[in-house]
Design a protein around this nucleic acid. Structure first.
Length: 195
DNA sequence: CATGGGATTGACT
DNA sequence: GTCAATCCCATGC
């Protein structure tokens, strides 16, 4: 089975907490991620290779960017060896560089409203569909690994999906005020899932 | 080729 | 709490 691979993409999702996403002069620290793997039906790669999911099956460390609800760009990091469809969705950042530009792009002032959601952070950083397939160690969009041990991480259920809803594959910094959707429901889903 | 459905957000009742 | 926006693409005829 693919349990080994699933564990791997989740390990990457955890490891990316505390890493820095950068595009141009804007950057933020990752505080929330979700893991997706071809073995479970919530993952775009579950139906196999298609034009849309091709990058998910490609080299790890590349960006998989797709359009959600016809409106928002979503940023993922491909997270398994070539040939295995899996990625980590970047769901929220703590803004660190280029805050004024992010505020202008978002039309909001409060730091908590700049990157507290997968569609918000791509808008704040100016990440678009054309970045699909770019090398995240090279740019123009980059993710720099964190040094050291990192913050305390909470696992919970993924958000906004209709299938495989019970997998506890969402990871976030405990008590961070920069995550998407408040922390109360998060704690409840955790107790129900991870018991 | 037509259709239906989103890994969301923000505005509004 | 409800709901529209908006477009890419997977699916089926």
């Amino acid at each position: 089975m693919s349990a080994t691979y699933s564990a791997e993409v989740c390990a990457v999702a955890r490891a990316l907490i505390g890493a820095v996403v950068r595009h141009g002069e804007t950057a933020g620290v990752i505080v929330e991620t979700e893991a997706y793997h071809e073995s479970e039906p919530a993952c775009h790669a579950h139906t196999g290779r298609t034009p849309r999911t091709l990058t998910l099956f490609g080299l790890p460390g590349r960006a998989y960017v797709y359009r959600s609800y016809g409106v928002h760009a979503m940023l993922n990091a491909v997270a398994e060896p070539e040939g295995v469809g899996a990625g980590v969705l970047i769901r929220a950042l703590e803004p660190c560089d280029g805050v004024e530009l992010m505020q202008a792009r978002r039309g909001r002032e409060r730091l908590e409203e700049l990157c507290s959601g997968p569609g918000k952070l791509t808008q704040a950083l100016g990440i678009v569909l054309a970045h699909n397939g770019c090398d995240l160690s090279d740019g123009p969009v980059t993710i720099s690994p964190r040094a050291g041990r990192g913050p305390e991480i909470v696992a919970s259920r993924r958000i906004g999906i209709t299938r495989a809803v019970d997998l506890p594959w969402r990871f976030s910094v405990r008590n961070s005020r920069f995550v998407s959707r408040g922390g109360v429901a998060l704690d409840r889903s955790l107790s129900r899932v991870a018991r």
